[in-house]
Amino acid sequence: MELLLPLVASLLIGAGVFLVLSRALIRLILGVAFISYGVNIAILLAGEGERHDAPPLLQLPGPHNDPLPQALILTAIVISFATTALLLVLALRAYQVTGTDHVQELADRPDPARPVVVYADPEYPSVSPEIGTANDVDAGGEGADT
């Protein structure tokens, strides 16, 4: 255990960094997830280092692990779960709009002159009536700029 967990943590973080540097969106997201797993294990190790006596109100035979790093990890897991979900939706949307999951191609794609609004079904734009209509565009066009 003393050697295994640090190895696993560093392996996960290393794999995560490798994947984050790759060019496919889905690998990038997996990389971010791996980094957060590795970090969680690293925090667990930070709490394992010292053996503690029984907690103040309990009279159980010790030694005990410090429970606080586990609470930290729990918080971190919840947050990384939510942000990974957001990142997946973002990647899916980027793929739907641009048709590519390659980071470089995505970055090279020029900005459209007008904002593009893509609806799943062009016949029925998914906008509620209180907002306005699809024809509600200010007059005038935008010239070329750099």
Partner: peptide, 12 residues
């Protein structure tokens, strides 16, 4: 609209 020529729809 955010910019000249843009659509107010998106901002709404």
């Amino acid at each position: 609209a955010p910019v000249r020529g843009g659509s107010a729809l998106l901002n709404r």
